[in-house]
Design a protein around this nucleic acid. Structure first.
Lengths: 218, 218, 218, 218
DNA sequence: TATGAATGAGATTTCATTCAT
DNA sequence: GATGAATGAAATCTCATTCAT
């Protein structure tokens, strides 16, 4: 009397395993047999759920991306002030926990593969776009409440997200001079000194001179 | 009567071909035979110069990285004012020319592979570190001349370089909402409104904070 | 509903084929594809059961050696008198049947390869040692029954086994002056005139000296 | 002004190197490039002197075999008594010196290869036959002088030579239970107790009844 | 639904051989 | 005489995919 849900369960199980293999070995070394072993299944079974390796990889990328987004969606609904939330964005993205590190590694693989895969491109466009819109919404909200400095919210969001991505890539690549800590400090500094409005309730010790700019220049 | 050693020339020829193949097909699909065809040689000849595919890839990464750096080293010696040079940094990195695009694709492959390769990690550390130091030197120089805002030069450089990298990755990945143009605008905005000192000779219309600039779209 | 595991059967099938190829072509020319063809399988299947060619060769050597020993173990339990059994030892080793010839060729390959392979060395030590002990046991038993001349049983066994091996190698090498027949005559002569006790029930015309006693060694 | 002898010299140099490579790596792993390196030449040069790898191997086998024989031909002319000379035969063949070990390894390779090479077969026939005839001549001479027990000299020589070969193969194969020492003891025991006539001037401690034989049975 | 067995296409790698210099 | 460079044929090995059970 097979539970009807067995299929859903199996798929999830296989996709998680696939993400782990991609993170650990790289898409380059993704082998069905490794996925099978990690999932405690046979290679044949993996193929029973996913026709081709490509399908499997694509589905895994989607799964990983969606779960990542899900994990952060609470930021959008948070009632905290915008700068706090932006700092939370940074914190939630610094590659610290195994979960975060795994997700980052999968993203980098996805980005490296995208130029040759319309489907991955579309996936990135959709989910990464959503992510950038979330950050932009926080910025816009903060501006409306006077917590975030003026400026095109999307541009500011792109600055932050770009910076996070670029520095994370270095952290992931194992840079000794660009550690997770330094990444965190740098991004938070950006939030505090560039994004936060002057009257922000986040007086950062050693606040840097710049970007007070606006008023001066305005 | 030794012919003028053809070795140096041949190695370079093979490495260029390898970079092109990596950029086009991904490290994942790097095939010796493709390299050979592109270089107009036999597969055996490629192996005559590089023992293993791994050696070849590593050497190609080094070659690509070094040439990229070489192409930008003039920025360090430039007499132009710091902000101009920082804008040149941005411009020189926006993936526009085929050459730039190729280099970026190779870097992303390198970063994706680094977690599993100490040699690549070391390579990135060395050359990428040098690159960040170059940018930091421009910042420091600009600060000394009052052209760049105060703040830890390395932190500021990391912000800019990180932003460039993160956004470039999206451009490379073929994002439709984050195009090369938008990357350029965003990074230049950062240079002009965050890095440039207030009395900078680059009075940007609509100076920062508001970045009313562009687009609410995307 | 697992089929009765085909694995044991398939492995045996592949190993027999491998032995035949080694015997016919030499280890030097052992090709997976030949093994596959001879076993009626695909090359991939051979690799499905044996990871590397080396593993395959090692396993084949073991298989050949063990089967050879198995084929002779009855000699140990035989109730016949010792000299008869020693003559049977000789007879069973003269390269006559295709089976014997094949086994000999494999052994020579193994011996030639041993200096470079600890695993083969260990294999030879274990199985060849056992074989020498079997012969020594026959000698010892014969001595106890007064059928075999005195002398250190292991030394006498080594003389016989060494002689058999050395002459067989020449037979195998295709010597025209040292044929299987001559090998047989020579070894039997040794059994009859050196090993057999004088009152042995095997009165050989032209009986010669035996080498009882001895051995401070072994 | 090239010396006319350079060619002879080069050939010898290459052949020695080939023997060493065969002994160390096995015929199986004989590579022209290794020979070249060991001889301090280029691969091209090796081919200048030997058309094909097969030619090279064949010539090397001949060279090795002939030099071995040469090294022992003094035994034939020795004035010592036969038993002494037979003991010298044994001693000179126990794999002790690097030179002996190398020669043995090459022979085993030759024997392993012979079944598939008429040329090697012919070589073995010719040179090994000569060697067996040398030993038989010593036996015959000893019998004529009453130093060696009766019996077909060729059969007795084959016994000794076979025993030497068979045991040497085990020593070469790295047997721990059949060491060079044990090989030596065993073969000398055979010489002293089986080949030596009763009135031999080699009273072996522990020596017992032997060789009266013949007459008893006659 | 699940799997172990089998396959074959494809990639790397090795290396004897050739040849221009 | 001698060599470095280049080649291409051949062999091992990998692994996605198929399929009978």
């Amino acid at each position: 009397m097979p539970r009807p849900s067995v299929e859903v369960e199996r798929r999830a199980q296989i996709l998680r395993a696939t993400c782990r293999v991609i993170a650990e070995n790289g898409l380059r070394n993704l082998r069905i047999s490794d996925v099978a072993r990690l999932a405690g299944l046979s290679g044949g079974t993996v193929h029973y759920y996913f026709d081709t390796k490509q399908d499997l990889a694509q589905a895994a990328f989607e799964d990983c991306f969606e779960r990542s987004l899900e994990r952060r969606r609470w930021l959008l609904d948070s009632r905290a002030d915008a700068v706090t939330r932006l700092r939370q964005v940074v914190d939630s993205y610094v590659p610290g926990t195994p979960e975060t590190v795994e997700a980052w590694k999968v993203w980098v693989e996805l980005w490296a593969e995208s130029p040759r895969s319309p489907r991955l491109r579309e996936l990135n466009e959709r989910l990464y776009g959503e992510w950038r819109r979330i950050v932009a919404a926080i910025v816009r909200d903060g501006q409306a409440r006077g917590q975030v400095a003026d400026g095109d919210p999307l541009v500011l969001a792109n600055m932050l997200v770009g910076m996070i991505d670029g520095l994370a890539v270095q952290v992931l690549a194992g840079s000794q001079s660009l550690t997770a800590d330094r990444m965190r400090t740098t991004c938070l500094e950006f939030v505090d000194t560039v994004l936060a409005a002057q009257n922000s309730p986040h007086p950062v010790p050693g606040r840097r001179a710049r970007a007070q700019s606006t008023s001066d220049n305005a």
